[in-house]
Structures are given as C-alpha cells and as structure tokens.
C-alpha cells in the first residue's frame, strides 16, 4: 500500500517536471511567434536563418537582431522576473495578493520615472538614456526598503507589510498625479506611455542587465525552495522544522526587490503578470516550491511573451502598450481560470 502510494507520488512528481518542461517549450515557441510578428512580415524560415547566422538581407538582419529580438527577449525576462518576484512575495508575506503591483513597488518606480521625466532630477553623472530607468530602480528599491523598515519598526508580521504596501501605492499614485498635473505636454506623453508599461524602448543592455539579475537571484530562490514550501504550513510550523523564518523573509524580500525593481525600471508598470504567473503555476503543479518556482518563472515568461505578440496584432498597425494588453486580455482569462478551479 505504502509503496504504491509512494510510486504514485513519484509519478506525480515526474508529471509536474514534464509540465515545467512543456511550459519552457511553450515559452520558447511564444518567443519565436513574437519574433515573426510585426509590421514587416517576416516568414519563420527567414527569421530562423537570421537567428542562426545564415544568409539573409541586411534589412532582415537589422529587424530581427536590433528591433525584434531585444523586445522579445525583454518580454520573456520581464515576465519571468515579475512572476518569480510575485511567487516568492506571496509565500513570504503569506498573502495570495502580494506582488510588486499591489505592494506599491511598481507605482513607486513609476513615480521615480516621473521625477526624471518631468522634473529632470536624477543621479549625477548618468547618461541621459539611463536616467529614467535608474530613477525608477532607485525608487522601487527605496519603496521596498521603506516597507521593510516600517514593518520592522512596528514589529509587525506580513499583514502589516501588506497594509503599508497598499498605503505606499496610494501615496505614490497621488504624487504621480501631482507630477502629471504640472508636466509639460511633451513630458506628459512620455510619462503616460511609461506608466502603461511598454517594451518599445527595450535595448540589448537592458536585456543583459535583467538576465544578469535573474542569473544571480534564481539559484538562491531554488535553494530556498524547501524552506519556502515549509512556510506555506505557517510560520510556527516552519520554525519548528528548523527554518530561520525571519532570515528567510529578509533575504527573499531582498531578492524580490532586486527582481521587481529591475523589471519595472526597464519597461514601466506592468500589472497582472506577477499575480497571474504564480496563480496559474499553482493550479498546474501545486505548491511544492521546487516545481512551483520554475513553473511560475516560465508561466510569467510565456504570458508576457504572448502579451507582447498581442500588443502588435490586436490593432493592426498600432503597437499598444504591453501593460494594457496584460491587464485587458489577461484578467478575463485569469478570472475564468480561477472560477473553473473553484468549481472543480
């Protein structure tokens, strides 16, 4: 009996690993789809030839390598980073609604960008192209640092942190509105575009930077997988298992800050992915973080990549801000998934 159950359990484990693999393949397929979609219709064969260094025209070369690939890669990485950040935040803050958007990290980043765009204030000695992103990053990290500090001062647990996050969200939104009120028409347009979340300005440097942040944080996340899984059983349980819960929380929030702030500072405010990625992954593979974290990363990447494609095709000839697409298309799908999950 026990052996049969264990076998079944291991079969479930293999099925989950396979699902993660499938998600990975799907994300790569979505990347390809994203690459062949655009105003200049490029056939798949030619795109693949350009990617593999084959013989193609100069125009194709430029479109694939300099225009579409950075955007497509950025979509994939931003989705991965936001979903991983969301998954870990939801676990350490013991709240299924936690993500960079609900905690006010995104709106703080937007505020930082606005300060750079509208008031021209930024860190000294930075090239102008980076000033908006760097400001957004500084504000996002500052927001999370402030949250942690307030949480610590108050001595409160996760629920206090969430409440501060909500408060921070409203404060940043109000200050952002104030800046919009005084902004010039030119700055306003730039700002609106940024607060909607856009991949249009993605560059290779940004892609590499975000890839580096992921490469640094992901191994630590995976190493913490069992500890995070234990935390799902409650703080007292995890501590009695020998998990240093406050240390785990502190390090996880640091990783998450880095991920969320980097992603948001590159592409602006993008809602829904940080929430939906982990939720869809949870429905697919459950909550054992050894599969849940990779599944969240890949789901986020997949969703964001599809959103990037949709942002080019939804209205022919118009490139919609991808943040709008994730919210408008993603949310109904998300609700449908939740309602279906409930009925089961």
């Amino acid at each position: 009996m026990s052996d049969a159950i264990l076998q079944l359990y291991h079969r479930q484990g293999r099925r989950n690993a396979l699902l993660v693999g499938v998600l990975g393949v799907a994300a790569l397929a979505a990347l390809l789809l994203d690459l062949v979609t655009g105003p200049a219709g490029l056939p798949l064969a030619e795109t693949l030839r350009a990617l593999t260094g084959g013989e193609v025209g100069r125009g194709t070369q430029v479109i694939v390598w300099d225009v579409r690939l950075p955007v497509a890669c950025m979509a994939l990485l931003v989705g991965a980073a936001l979903a991983l950040a969301g998954a870990e935040m939801q676990t350490v803050l013991e709240n299924p609604l936690a993500e960079s958007f609900t905690l006010g990290v995104s709106s703080s980043a937007a505020l930082g960008a606005a300060v750079a765009i509208v008031l021209g204030l930024t860190l000294p000695g930075l090239p102008a192209v980076w000033s908006v992103s760097v400001n957004a990053f500084v504000f996002a990290v500052g927001a999370l640092a402030l949250l942690q500090l307030l949480g610590r001062l108050r001595g409160g647990g996760p629920e206090v942190l969430i409440l501060f996050g909500v408060a921070l969200n409203f404060t940043s939104a109000a200050l952002l509105s104030l800046l919009q009120f005084v902004a010039s028409a030119d700055a306003l347009q730039q700002l609106v575009f940024w607060t909607m979340g856009s991949l249009a300005s993605a560059q290779w440097q940004g892609v590499l930077m975000l890839a580096l942040v992921l490469a640094i944080t992901v191994p630590f996340s995976f190493r913490a997988a069992w500890r995070l899984t234990a935390l799902r059983l409650g703080e007292a349980q995890a501590r009695s298992f020998g998990v240093d819960v406050s240390g785990l929380r502190r390090w996880t929030l640091l990783r998450v800050s880095l991920l969320a702030a980097s992603a948001v500072s590159m592409v602006g405010v993008i809602g829904f992915v940080g929430l939906a990625g982990p939720h869809i992954a949870r429905m697919l593979v459950g909550e054992n973080h050894r599969v849940f974290l990779p599944a969240s990363i890949l789901t986020g990447a997949l969703v964001m990549s599809l959103a990037s494609t949709l942002s080019k095709t939804l209205v022919p000839g118009v490139l919609l801000p991808v943040g709008l697409v994730t919210s408008l298309i993603g949310l109904p799908i998300f609700f449908a998934l939740i309602l279906r999950g409930r009925r089961r």
């Binding site: 069992w226 234990a230 059983l233 349980q237 298992f241 020998g242 998990v243 909550e287």
Partner: peptide, 16 residues
C-alpha cells in the same frame, strides 16, 4: 495550502 499531505510531511524533514 494546496500541498499534498505527504509533501507537507516531507517538507518537515527537508526544510531544516
């Protein structure tokens, strides 16, 4: 929690 019972007991062994 959507952890299955067996997984939760394994977590008690492997997390610390």
């Amino acid at each position: 929690s959507s952890l299955v019972a067996l997984e939760s007991v394994i977590a008690a062994l492997r997390s610390g």
